[in-house]
């Protein structure tokens, strides 16, 4: 189950990376050089990278098998009790 979750997660990250790469290519082709607004790219890439790494690490802390086994019993817990 962890492997399956990892596969889904990596697929998401690959799609995310491909879209961001396409946007960056488009931006490099059509932006003006020496435009100060270009400074946004660096922080965005840094934040994205940190979040991608963090989410990948957190993925391994999630007890997927236990959640799958206990999912039917957890649903009443998620519904707010009066």
């Amino acid at each position: 189950m962890t492997l399956f979750a990892l596969l889904i997660h990596l697929t998401f990250l690959v799609i995310y990376t491909l879209i961001v790469a396409a946007l960056l290519w488009h931006y490099r082709k059509y932006s003006l050089p020496k435009d100060p607004a270009r400074r946004v790219i660096g922080p965005f890439l840094l934040i994205s990278l940190i979040l991608m790494i963090t989410s990948t690490i957190l993925l391994f802390f999630v007890p997927w098998e236990a959640l799958l086994t206990l999912a039917p019993t957890l649903v009443p817990t998620l519904v707010p009790q009066p």
């Binding site: 994205s48 963090t54 957190l58 999630v62 236990a66």
Partner: peptide
């Protein structure tokens, strides 16, 4: 049991 999942989904949300 759910807390790691919550934090994991939270980082994906931030992303």
């Amino acid at each position: 049991l759910l807390l790691p999942l919550v934090f994991y989904l939270f980082t994906l949300y931030l992303l």
